[in-house]
Every structure is written in C-alpha cells, then in structure tokens.
Amino acid sequence: MHTFYRGTTESILTSCITVWYGGCTASCRKTLQRTVKEAEKIIGAPLLSLQDIYRTRMARKALSIAGDPTHPNHCFLSLLPSGTRIRSLQVRTSRLRDSFIHQAIRMPNSLPALPPLPSLPSAPTYSGH
C-alpha cells in the first residue's frame, strides 16, 4: 500500500511542488495535507507531510542550481564572498517573496551551514590515441 501511495497519490500531489507550494494559501495547504492524513489512515503507516517533501526538494533543487553555472537561474543563487550564505534579493510584494527563487534562497540561508554544492561532471578529455 505504501509503494502504491508513493507511486500514484504522492507523485500527483507533489508534481512540481517546488514551483507551486510556496504560493499556496494556508487553506489550500491544509486541504492537501488532509489528503495525506487520509492516506495515512488507509495505509496504517506514517507518511511524510507535504511541507517536509517541499523542503527536501527545494533544498536539493536550490543546491543543484547554485552548483551549476550553466543553469539559467544560477545568477540568482550566487554565494556571498564569505561562501557561507546565498546572496538575498530585495522584494516588494508577497507574491514575489513566495516565488521559487526567493524560497530557494531563504531555505539554505536558514540552515546553520550551507551543504556542499554538487559538482558538475567534468567533460571527458581526448588523449589523441
């Protein structure tokens, strides 16, 4: 039952969660979480909350963008000269504050230390033999 939930219900609920979850209203999040709670009752095992899934995926995506200089959003996730935090951007509206980029900056900055950035695989070299 757990595998079925993860493969169907959770994959539908969390499709592109890093994009839409930050802009959801509290009532929308509560409604979606209620679906997860009902699935917990049916399965009889604890499941990850949508907020936990969102945080995990957001951190992973933010770090992969920050570590990939070829990504179009890499310039928004640049490290400060100290290398301990990501440069914050100024916002004037809550809509922009809840967008992916700003959430992706705030989440790693709220950690005591930034996790190491993933490195890009190096291009194979041609030896000429």
Rank of each mutant, 00 (worst) to 15 (best):
V91N: 09
H74Y: 12
S82W: 01
T84A: 00
R106V: 11
R55N: 13
V36T: 09
S11E: 15
R95D: 15
Q90D: 11
F100Q: 05
P118R: 04
H71V: 04
F100D: 10
P118M: 03
N109Q: 05
I42D: 05
K30D: 14
Y54E: 10
T8G: 02
G44L: 07
M58D: 06
A45K: 09
S99L: 04
P72R: 02
T25V: 12
K30C: 07
L63Q: 07
S94A: 14
A45S: 13
L63Y: 07
G83N: 00
T56V: 10
P46N: 04
T25C: 02
F4M: 01
K37E: 03
A104N: 06
T18S: 14
G44A: 11
S78D: 00
E40H: 00
C75S: 14
E38P: 01
M58Y: 08
A123V: 07
R92D: 09
G44M: 07
I43G: 02
G67K: 10
P124R: 05
F4P: 00
P118K: 06
S119C: 06
V19S: 12
L79A: 07
Y54P: 01
C16T: 13
L89F: 06
P124E: 08
S27V: 06
S64P: 09
S88R: 01
P108C: 10
S88F: 03
D68S: 13
V19I: 13
K61Y: 13
D68I: 08
T8R: 02
A59C: 11
I86S: 02
L50V: 03
L89T: 09
P115I: 05
G44Y: 02
P108A: 09
P69V: 09
R55Y: 08
S127W: 05
G128D: 09
A104K: 05
G23Y: 03
V19C: 10
I17S: 11
S122D: 09
K30Q: 10
L48D: 10
